[in-house]
Amino acid sequence: MKVLVGVKRVVDANIKVRVKSDGSGVDTANVKMAMNPFCEIAVEQAVRMKEAGTVTEIVAVSVGAAQCQETLRTALAMGADRAILVETDQEVQPLAVAKVIKALCDKEKPGLVIMGKQAIDDDCNQTGQMLAALLGWPQACFVSKIEVNGDTAQITREIDGGLEKLSSKMPLVMTTDLRLNEPRYVTLPNIMKAKKKPLENVKPADLGVDVAPRLATLKVAEPPQRTAGVKVDDVAALVNKLKNEARVI
């Protein structure tokens, strides 16, 4: 079975972003970028399924600017076999990404698509569900365990109250949650090997997809700041503050 994995280049998870003073967006110039953590889990899942013999080929896909090549090289170093960059300098929103990957699926015919459940920049949590809809495939979101047996998959996914067991037909779009696996670190030899793996570059127009944004961002603002708090010396002082100052207990 061939697997297609979507990966997104985002601001590194450890960086606290700053809002630009003109309110036009978030300052990402000279900020460390990395693969979205949920996409790392997606790549790791594909690699583990290949190691287990369920998967024969892993194709990593990214949609965005030329620099997304770096993110795809990371996916290749983790164990993906080849990569496709759908290059555009336009802002790409989830619906557009889903349409691009749908077009690639029509061409590549994977048996499974694995994506992160959410990108930590726009926090949308949409693309996997949208792709499944456009393909007319079932979806398995927020997955913490999956076993594929021929034409069906047994899935455990995280829901608000606990866990849900889902039985699904294949092909399938799944999105990863945190407990699915712990992604491996890429090693230097694998980074070197990844440089020789094929990376194809196409444009959205080559796939016949219009990626024009549907939502206009009118402004981006700082959230309200919390007022500074105080250190209290002991529990008695804390209880006193909570009762008499904050009046919450």
Binding site: V11, D121, N125, L218
Partner: peptide, 27 residues
Amino acid sequence: AQVSDISDVVSADTFVRPIYAGNALAT
């Protein structure tokens, strides 16, 4: 498009939503 996780309604077609782990609010 879907407008995810809105934290405020400005008008019938305009919404506020947190991005970047709530470190910015996009309208």
